[in-house]
Design a protein around this nucleic acid. Sequence first.
DNA 1: TAGATTGTTAATCGATTAACAATC
DNA 2: TAGATTGTTAATCGATTAACAATC
Lengths: 206, 206
Amino acid sequence: MKVLPEKTVERLSEYRRALIKCLDSGQTHIYSHQLAKLLNLTAVQVRRDLMFIGYSSLQRKGYDIKALVDLIVSILDAKEGLNIAVVGMGNLGTAITSYFTGKRSRLNIVAVFDIDQKTIGKAFNGIACYNISELKKMVQEKNIKIAILTVPPNVATQTANDLKEAGIAGILNFTTVPLHIGEQIYVEDYDMVTSIEKVAYFVKNK
Amino acid sequence: MKVLPEKTVERLSEYRRALIKCLDSGQTHIYSHQLAKLLNLTAVQVRRDLMFIGYSSLQRKGYDIKALVDLIVSILDAKEGLNIAVVGMGNLGTAITSYFTGKRSRLNIVAVFDIDQKTIGKAFNGIACYNISELKKMVQEKNIKIAILTVPPNVATQTANDLKEAGIAGILNFTTVPLHIGEQIYVEDYDMVTSIEKVAYFVKNK
DNA sequence: TAGATTGTTAATCGATTAACAATC
DNA sequence: TAGATTGTTAATCGATTAACAATC
């Protein structure tokens, strides 16, 4: 299949969660306008996304939720699962780690890293914290593909380079520092400060 | 001035931070291509954004950083500052609160809220934690305009309604629950799960 | 059937990029 | 001047929405 548009990928992730909820409550089929309403979207948008992933309902009785979830799983998830590291165990890193663990999913946090001797060796939700100097070793040993970067800004660039060096394939960057590490690594940035400033601006001007 | 495009607003927030860093290091002027490089953008993009906000350099000697920062401040910030509440003091709420406080800025977290009796009354970075039942009272008393929503999913909808009821103008929603609260309130969603699933997909397919 | 739903094409909207004249 | 930089228009790209024929 062709690579999907970014926005469609984002919505697939949201569809999946909403659909699983429906399944849990015993629902078996869902109309495009119902799914749309759950996520504040339009029905056309839903149908267009499903077109992209080649799913169709055959009858006009709504989509088979189970089948649709399975299709989304096959698109989003790697068959063998994907191993993740959290790098930087300050407040945010700790919050993210506890947020993700326990969720049954094919995305697994398998190691966390810090530089502080007081933090190294501790367990976070049962996951051992290693010294950042062991990054390369652990990435290879545990087959880690993605890093969640939650270090302080002053070491962000250096740590990103270490991650590149270690052979990571993707980074979710929560630092406010733009990373310049080339095309081979997929980087998704999230900047809390920008987010809140955006809300502030549109509250003022809309 | 007309309302700016979303993406331009986001970048203005990033420009500001990058430019302040430049100022701190003694730089007074900056070319569009230099600023672009700092943020992994193109020079045209920078110039187009500045066109939107009506800034021009007069000479071809780069932009006056100080003047540009002042202009961005006047666009993004409310003159009197903006008061913010964090609602839900779990790991994420705590992390966000400590992340924001201490930063000198016109965005101030002035209250935090929880439902847990063990948490209520505690101080987070010097900010008192109130019972969610006092939301409306405190929002009025402290003139709170924006809420950062970090409650567990099962109470997200109810809490969002409480926030609406309390007269909040904007919400930064960190729960995975889509909010249906109408047009009057500006809602910005951030979904960590979607973000990481997106990275996973593009690592696999790009 | 009539009404609701779907899949898809065409049109529109928003954002980025290419192109280039004007300026220092 | 010649080269670098800027501001802006036109073209392109990506995403959403409108329109509608086909289906149950």
